[in-house]
Design a binder for these strands. Structure first.
Ligand code: MN
Ligand code: MN
Ligand code: ZN
Ligand code: ZN
Lengths: 143, 143
DNA sequence: AATAAAATGCAATAATGTTGCATTTGCGGT
DNA sequence: ACCGCAAATGCAACATTATTGCATTTTATT
């Protein structure tokens, strides 16, 4: 099963119609190891209306196909969810690493994050941890 | 020493001139226990130009007087820093709690957050932890 | 009071996100 | 293969958030 077939299956599984713009978004996101900003997506996706892109992204997010994370500048970045996300039930409580040099956002799964105890009264639904610094690539360049 | 004198001292300490708009921003932020969004500030600050507000906020942030945190919608919220922040050296590695009901952002200091070990290659500069859920007020209303 | 630097206000512009509506398209049923 | 409808797209208009350049005002200092 090639990539494209996987994407088509993914859409079908979430009752989303197989359209060219949607396949492009999936293709772009899956090709990158880091989260991609909306402006970046917009600039490379080609002949797709801006509004359509916004709608695709929010549809995917609602369905649990992608998740959104804001970087240090407050711009939205998107990444494919790990397999166990479902509609309105995201499991993206992994660490997001923001590189201060290249501005990339890394999704780091598989880190054991200790739960934190909050003061009485707060009812926690989700946790998320983020860090800033230099990513491996930029770290090397400096040295 | 009353509040206003404290603010004036704060400005002087950071080599910022004592101006009406700046005092108003300090007064507004210090009166709230939660981080305040830029739009909120803008709507209550009265007769101060929007651009001036932006410039004040970024000046304060650079000096380590306030810190910025993005809420679930990606809008910037601002809060006074705890005393030990300095220019370009913030220590706001506390937990930010985003209430999904009232949308307020709480700065929760004094929680012991365990440092997380990152994969080799990443050079961490700052950590920050955030949570979503119901704040005490909204939690009560539900019950 | 004179001065220089800093801060503000205003206008213009950019970037980002949203809404309504007409048109097109995917897809299940026939 | 065709039909019909819901869904998705594209376009235009608008709203919000943010930035830049420049003239004017204000602050702090001498
Ligand atoms: Mn992620
Ligand atoms: Mn804070
Ligand atoms: Zn980097
Ligand atoms: Zn609340």
């Amino acid at each position: 099963m090639n990539n494209n077939q996987q994407f088509e299956y993914l859409l079908k599984r979430h009752q989303l119609k197989r359209t060219e713009p949607r396949l492009r978004v999936l293709s772009l996101l899956s090709a990158k190891s880091v989260a991609t900003s909306q402006p970046d997506l917009e600039s490379v996706i080609g002949d797709v209306d801006r509004v359509t892109l916004y709608r695709i992204l929010s549809a995917f997010e609602e369905k649990g196909i992608i998740h959104k994370v804001f970087d240090l500048n407050g711009t939205a970045n998107y990444a494919l969810c790990s397999s166990d996300c479902a509609e309105h039930d995201h499991h993206d409580e992994h660490l997001h690493f923001n590189c201060t040099s290249c501005k990339k956002v890394y999704c780091l799964d598989d880190l054991d994050v200790q739960p934190v105890k909050l003061p009485a009264g707060f009812k926690v639904e989700t946790f998320s941890l983020s860090a800033t610094g230099l990513c491996p690539k930029c770290n090397n360049k400096e040295a």
